[in-house]
């Protein structure tokens, strides 16, 4: 009785049959959910990464600049356009209110992305496939992406980073 104390001996009341069925079912489902997350790491191909490196603005900017210089193929709207070799490290920088550089990738190849911000928190939101990750300052988040389809993708920011937050859009092109 929810507003008055329970009857004496409440602790010893037998659990009703349907409640037992339900609790049993719920328990199985719960353990199933737990197993799903683990098994997906074994059999699934979309798992957030294990790797984060500690870094700082200075170090990350140096790596970013060297990376862009090495693979730069052009410019678009003031953004460097970069075409890295497959299976290499790719550096993407988040800064109010830009995602840099513009990347050209090859379908079916893997790229080891290094994502970091040089100021606030930003949200790496890859559209239109809708994959979302957080980007922190002073933390290098390493995510190995393998694009599965060619096309033009956009990276929008989905963590509030100041009044120009909605202007923060980057671009990734995936070629056949």
């Amino acid at each position: 009785m929810s507003a008055i104390p329970p009857k004496e001996g409440w602790y010893y009341t037998k659990i009703a049959k349907e409640e037992k069925i339900w609790i049993g079912l719920a328990l199985v489902v719960c353990l199933g959910l737990f197993a799903t997350m683990i098994l997906w790491h074994v059999y699934g191909k979309q798992n957030p990464s294990f790797t984060t490196y500690k870094t700082n603005v200075h170090e990350f900017n140096a790596l970013y600049d060297a990376f862009v210089e090495k693979y730069k193929v052009g410019e678009e709207h003031g953004f460097a356009v970069v075409k890295p070799d497959p299976n290499t490290d790719v550096f993407m920088r988040a800064q109010i209110w830009r995602w840099e550089p513009v990347l050209i990738l090859k379908k079916g190849e893997s790229y080891r992305f290094h994502l970091a911000s040089t100021d606030f928190l930003h949200g790496f939101s890859l559209q239109p496939i809708n994959m979302n990750f957080m980007v922190y300052p002073n933390h290098d988040y390493v995510l190995t992406f393998t694009p599965t389809e060619a096309g033009e993708y956009k990276v929008i920011c989905n963590e509030f980073c100041g009044v120009g937050h909605h202007l923060m859009v980057g671009k990734i092109v995936v070629e056949e």
Binding site: H77, G78, F79, R98, G123, S125, Q127, P128, I129, N130, K154, I156, C157, N158, E159, F160, H165, H166, L167, M168, V169, G170, K171
Partner: peptide
């Protein structure tokens, strides 16, 4: 959200940005 629309976002047409994205 499943279409990718961000939360806490003022303008999902990205007017004034160098690149824009059009949602479904």
């Amino acid at each position: 959200g499943a279409f990718g629309i961000p939360r806490r976002h003022y303008d999902i047409t990205f007017t004034g940005s160098a690149f824009t994205h059009t949602f479904n």
